[in-house]
Amino acid sequence: MTSPATLTAGQVHARPEDFTVVDVRTPGEYASGHLPGAVNVPLDRIGASLPELRRAAEDKVLLLVCASGARSENAARTLAAHGVTAIGLAGGTRSWAAAGHGLDHPADGRRSVWAMERQVRLTAGALVLLGLLLALLVHPAFQLLSAAVGAGLAFSALTDTCGMALVLGRLPFNRRR
């Protein structure tokens, strides 16, 4: 399967009026900083938002954005399966900010939430540590908790998906109020 088309931050910044920007990160991540004019449609809501996204793609180029480009690529594939053409921002908001372009923040003053990747690292690390401590203090079988987290991380890397991020994305601080 071929990867969806992408544009660089410089290409998008040169002609922002050509795009409808859709940020597919969680609402918490979106609140931490997003491309100017971007609307937030989390990856797990892409299917439910198909009619609106289809209409948006008729007027302008649909540009999908996430933190690094992986989730926007998944969203572009999902949309393509439903006949909606979209492109991604290569490198996501990280590349946008690294190129010196500004990020907008919600006007409602919500506190920013850690990026999903950082939340996953904290959770995985805490679970591995907990498994090891419980194995030492309670019962050796708790080593399986650490092994399960390690297996999940390896699977995540091989498939470019993250079950832990999907679960964390459902927590209240990662959802729209």
Rank of each mutant, 00 (worst) to 15 (best):
I87L: 13
A5T: 13
A157P: 00
H34F: 15
I87T: 13
T159D: 06
S95T: 14
G69D: 09
P140W: 08
L171A: 10
R25G: 10
G88D: 09
S156D: 10
C66L: 07
I46F: 08
A107F: 01
V128G: 05
L129K: 07
I46N: 05
P27I: 13
L103M: 09
V128T: 09
V22A: 05
G88P: 08
L50A: 02
S72I: 08
V138S: 08
I87Q: 07
L136V: 06
T93D: 03
G47R: 04
R77A: 09
Q143L: 15
S146D: 06
V120H: 03
V12E: 05
L134W: 11
L103P: 12
V39D: 02
A151Y: 10
A76T: 06
Q119Y: 00
G10W: 00
A5H: 06
T123R: 07
Y30R: 00
R111A: 15
G47F: 01
H105N: 01
G33C: 02
S32I: 02
A141G: 09
L50P: 08
L145D: 07
M164L: 15
P140N: 04
S32W: 03
M164F: 10
L127T: 08
A80C: 10
Y30W: 15
A115C: 01
G152Y: 10
A67P: 00
L132V: 15
R54E: 13
L122I: 15
A81R: 12
A154R: 04
L35R: 00
H34R: 09
L63N: 05
L130G: 07
R110M: 04
L53M: 08
L136S: 05
L122G: 05
D59G: 15
L64G: 12
V65E: 06
M164C: 03
R110W: 03
G47C: 00
L171S: 10
A38T: 02
E117T: 10
L127Q: 06
D160A: 12
A141N: 05
A147M: 14
G169D: 00
A86Q: 09
D160Y: 01
T2W: 05
L137N: 04
A57L: 03
V61T: 15
F142D: 04
A135E: 06
T6W: 07
E117K: 02
P140M: 07
V41W: 02
T20A: 09
H105R: 15
E58N: 13
L137K: 09
G102S: 13
G109L: 06
R15K: 13
T123E: 01
A67V: 12
T2N: 11
P16R: 12
S32F: 03
M164H: 08
D160Q: 14
L158E: 01
G28E: 04
R54M: 02
I87H: 01
S95G: 10
L53D: 01
V39S: 11
